[in-house]
């Protein structure tokens, strides 16, 4: 899809708008895009890529963000905004899951130390 010339994309978007009766006439959701990509980065920083479930949701977020960007190129801004909301929810879930996993690992470490202490005593 991305390899297609942009003029064709623009044309098809314009045709789409006409066909839908200018349903997506709202302005591009650039703020929502920025918020979503920020959430994705935050999830990556916390290590979402190393935990399978978090990585899955991060992947979903990224795919949907890409999809939203395509929609924006087609000027389907309302639809793009909605897809970005989905993407951000997935990114936030990835972040929360990664943090929970991190905490779980730390709790496990603390318990292991307690067991080692009890064993050594």
């Amino acid at each position: 899809m991305t390899s297609k010339p942009s003029s064709i994309a623009l044309l098809s978007a314009a045709l789409g708008m006409l066909a839908a009766g200018c349903a997506s006439s709202s302005k591009p959701p650039t703020e929502q895009l920025a918020a979503t990509t920020a959430s994705e980065r935050a999830a990556e920083e916390v290590g979402a890529t190393t935990m399978p479930q978090a990585a899955y949701h991060l992947q979903l977020a990224k795919e949907q963000t890409e999809h939203a960007q395509l929609l924006m190129k087609k000027h389907e801004n309302a639809r793009a905004k909605s897809v970005l909301e989905r993407a951000q929810a997935d990114a936030e879930l990835a972040l929360a899951m990664a943090r929970a996993d991190q905490e779980r690992a730390e709790a496990q470490g603390a318990l292991d130390r307690v067991r080692a202490l009890q064993k050594s005593n």
Binding site: L93, A96, E103, R104
Partner: peptide, 29 residues
């Protein structure tokens, strides 16, 4: 889309609760 987001919000609440519980477990240990 809104239902999808609502699903994620419920899952986020669960993950944050999990994190909180793990934190308590850690503090206790």
């Amino acid at each position: 889309d809104l239902a999808y987001v609502a699903t994620r919000k419920a899952q986020i609440a669960q993950a944050i609760a999990n994190r909180e519980m793990e934190g308590r477990r850690k503090a206790q240990a």
